[in-house]
Simulated assay, not measured.
Amino acid sequence: MPDTATPPDARHALRQLIRQRRKSLSQAEQQDAAQQLVARFKEHAGIRAARRIALYLANDGELDPLPAIHWLWAQQKEVYLPVLPPFTPGHLLFQRYTATSPMTRNRFGIPEPELDMQQVIPHSALDIICTPLVAFDAAGNRLGMGGGYYDRTLASWHEHGLGPRPLGLAHNCQQVEVVPKEQWDVPLPEIITPARSWDFS
């Protein structure tokens, strides 16, 4: 049987290319993209109907959802952020995030709330998980940073349709013709960029 696995260097090269592309965006372009994301959220029926939404804090040139988080708070939505727990490596917890949450940085240098298990909920209790990504294509395939955290989190949704709906967030420049896939990759049913919403479901 032929080996159909994607050469690791192909994924690595694409990851490096698109990371550099998004980091090349100016501060003004980043701010404009963040405001356009707010506009997309305002017109998104699923976001408007959701009560508990997981997002992330931008790192490495990612599309910044912080203005959208402030809008969600104004709509009385509960916002959750991923936390890397010390007791289950390779997995994510989702913890309530408010304007007064004590913050720290995880081992990757990314801001996250200080772990407080009383503020953590099962990810199945979320309505939507907004995922960062490095690259995506017009079929909804997502290339992440390579840690597999979101693929593990979304496995039950991908295999059984259970749990929160995943929603990818990306800059327009992160779209590529084809994302090289692996068997563990979880394609997304929907991706939002500043320019448009992509619905693959």
Rank of each mutant, 00 (worst) to 15 (best):
D3P: 10
E190T: 11
V134A: 00
I18D: 03
M103H: 05
D151F: 01
P65L: 00
R11M: 05
G144H: 08
K42L: 05
R52D: 05
V178L: 08
Q118M: 07
P8G: 00
V83C: 09
P82I: 04
D199G: 04
Q36R: 13
Q30R: 15
W184K: 01
E62S: 08
M103W: 03
E159T: 08
G147R: 08
Y149Q: 07
R11N: 10
P194F: 15
F94C: 06
F200G: 12
K42G: 07
L154M: 04
I110F: 00
P7D: 09
R105F: 13
Q76H: 15
P111F: 03
L115Y: 09
Y56C: 00
L55A: 02
H171I: 11
F94W: 05
V186F: 11
P67T: 03
D60V: 09
T104R: 14
T6V: 12
D3M: 12
A139C: 06
K42C: 08
M103G: 10
C173Q: 13
G90K: 01
T88K: 14
L72Q: 04
Q36S: 09
Q16M: 10
T100G: 13
I47H: 03
C130K: 05
Q35T: 13
G161N: 14
E114V: 14
L93S: 13
H123A: 09
R196T: 15
G163F: 10
L55Y: 02
A54H: 02
R51S: 14
T4M: 11
Q27L: 14
A54N: 08
D64S: 09
D185W: 01
P113T: 06
L188F: 06
P166T: 01
S124D: 12
P113Y: 07
